[in-house]
């Protein structure tokens, strides 16, 4: 490479080795100042393990973190997920031990089987007619909610899954 001080690099030229070198440096630079969390790909793969199900993917619609001042570092979060057929709202309360309590509501209200998939296995609950459900003790860590189909003959026979969360 022979850099020429008088020549301004033109936008219309093909990319050359200096450009590729610069892009490599930029990748290292942004990789250093704003790195992707190292465990994110593993959490994504955890969610993708459900790929064989006929699923509807719920999207995170809203998240609020409320620090419960009176109880020190304990936190309560409410998270809302939206899918085409269902809104899932959950409240996560940190417990004293290594578990969290999750209270949830489905809208529109309906009775559904709900699975909480965790790295330690799955927990199940059934929502009541008002759409309420609860998982009193969920191990901390990565978890994912799956709302199973309403049953044979139901209008919507698909499961609704949320992205994996860290509880």
């Amino acid at each position: 490479m022979t850099p020429d001080a008088d020549r301004v690099p033109s936008a219309d030229e093909p990319l050359d080795d200096t450009d590729f070198g610069l892009l490599d440096e930029l990748r290292e630079l942004f990789g250093a100042v704003d790195p992707m969390p190292a465990d994110l790909p593993e959490r994504i793969k955890f969610s993708l393990a459900l790929r064989d199900l006929e699923v509807e993917v719920a999207r995170l619609a809203e998240e609020d973190r409320l620090a419960v001042a009176a109880r020190g570092a304990e936190q309560s979060r409410t998270i809302t997920f939206d899918s085409d057929s269902l809104t899932i709202m959950i409240r996560v309360d940190a417990d004293r031990d290594e578990t969290v309590r999750v209270d949830g509501w489905l809208a529109p209200p309906q009775r559904r089987e709900i699975e909480m998939k965790t790295t330690a296995g799955s927990l199940t609950a059934v929502s009541d007619e008002q759409g309420r459900f609860a998982f009193p003790r969920v191990p901390r860590g990565t978890a994912q909610l799956i709302v199973h189909p309403a049953g044979p003959g139901a209008e919507d026979a698909r499961s609704v899954v949320t992205p994996a969360l860290v509880l």
Binding site: V8, P9, A11, D12, E13, P14, L15, D19, L22, L23
Partner: peptide, 20 residues
């Protein structure tokens, strides 16, 4: 960044000019 092959484009050209 170019219809035939990727060209440098004005952003990269500007960056190089700034660095040089």
């Amino acid at each position: 960044v170019g219809s035939i092959g990727p060209t440098r484009g004005r952003c990269l050209a500007k960056l190089r000019a700034l660095l040089d």
